[in-house]
Design a protein around this nucleic acid. Structure first.
Lengths: 248, 248
DNA sequence: TTTAATTTGTTCAAAAATAATCAAAATAAA
DNA sequence: TTTATTTTGATTATTTTTGAACAAATTAAA
């Protein structure tokens, strides 16, 4: 009984029953609980399931499209902590930008009850907030199916027409050398968000801190505040540079 | 019975009944009241519900997520016939506008395989077409949850930047006296679509022909072609006025 | 108003689940 | 074969979750 086989059995059970229990699985497969826990943790890290105390659940009971969900399901606990802290920064009447990152997406669940305006280019965000107290403004332009969001010059111009209190953004990486993005389109829209917002918050889990990928598109001072679960030494440097660091 | 599961059950109950009671939930799930209280407090902290003495209530009492679905499900056979005929009008390479009506929505299923550009203010249309060959352009602006679409001056300006071959529109009513809409916002965006499209198709089932509701916003000549299942005498008048009538 | 009943938060303890550490077993590589 | 690597399990310490008891706060009743 190897990992692959157990993984298969666990996923099957999740699909049929919707949830699994560490003890039951361990007894059923005649294997130790700690091993099952390790399996579940690894699979949760891959976004294949949602880890609970004593077991695991299906990632999404209600279906939201596809690869976005999987990405969004990675590192869930850290992201939720970050987003809970981010939600505390949002007050009644605020006008906020939300970008299309998977971390920022998880902010939705914490702001449904707030009377605010959200301006976003992310369709999942729209979907998640459409029946909430939040008033929505959708950024127009060409839709990118992979990112489930709108990007491009029309989108950037749309943003430029508004002025928000706060922007909640994600990046692909951040280091002492600046901010990094996966593509030019993402870089440009992030800059547009930042420059039309009074305050800019960066939501990033530990995997992004110190990471330098693809395209360097901006200096650290583009953002005012980083909300993160990371304990990296890099954070001290950010602070020295005048960036607020909110630790969760 | 872990936190995640209880949370789900509580949310389900809130959605169906509208409120929950600590004692009842505790008895039902066979768990202590203090635990339920802790659950409710945490969920209230996340903005998922309003905490009351002895229980909790839904955050937003008004919910309209299924209205669109219900509306879309009416008169399905007629609408599908109309849309199948509409799809025949669409060729490879076309750039088309699609508005947010329930009839136009049903056009999606017939154009998924076409290599065209769709410019739309309807979020359901975006959802339906997001994993198809269709390239999407989303019209930006303020989102209206009831109509599941974007309307307003920003949206109208967005439309004005583009020029489409064909527009597929719905109205609330059409008679020899002109076109009728439910609201100013819908009227304005319909006019914007029509004036930035080379050819304008009106998709309407028999219930709309001869109907004169709320706001008269345009002349018959705003549209070039009506696709309908109606056998009304009115159609002869439309033809006489130079409007093509495609009968299904 | 005052009084009673209910609901709630706090503190503490028990139980359950988990992570960490290290050793044993299984597997792969040399 | 031997050696290294990975996987697994047992033990222990830590963390999380839960419930009971009781005081404080809130609501309802007199």
């Amino acid at each position: 009984m190897n990992f692959q086989k157990r993984k298969q059995i666990i996923l099957d059970k999740l699909n049929t029953v919707g949830e699994v229990d560490v003890k039951l699985i361990a007894a059923e497969l005649d294997i130790s609980e700690i091993t099952i826990r390790r399996d579940l943790n690894q699979m949760a890290g891959d976004g294949l399931l949602y880890r609970t105390h004593g077991g695991a659940m299906k990632v999404n009971p209600f279906e939201v499209p596809h690869e976005f969900v999987n990405k969004a399901a990675k590192n869930v606990e850290a992201k939720d902590k970050i987003c809970r802290a981010a939600a505390e920064q949002i007050n009644h009447g605020d006008i906020i930008f939300m970008d299309c990152g998977s971390t920022v997406f998880r902010l939705c669940q914490f702001i449904k009850g707030k009377k605010i305006k959200v301006i976003t280019n992310s369709i999942p965000v729209v979907y998640e907030l459409q029946n909430s107290l939040v008033s929505l403004n959708i950024i127009g332009g060409e839709f990118n199916a992979e990112r489930q969001a709108v990007h491009g010059s029309i989108a950037n111009e749309h943003i430029a027409r508004y002025k928000a209190n706060k922007a909640f953004l994600g990046v692909d990486g951040i280091s002492r050398n600046g901010l990094f993005a996966n593509s030019e389109l993402e870089a440009e829209i992030t800059q547009a968000f930042a420059s039309h917002s009074a305050k800019t918050y960066l939501l990033c889990d530990d995997s992004k801190i110190g990471k330098e990928s693809y395209l360097r598109f901006g200096e650290l001072n583009l953002i005012n505040s980083i909300i993160t679960n990371s304990k990296s030494d890099e954070l001290a440097f950010f602070r020295k540079k005048g960036v607020e660091v909110i630790d969760v």
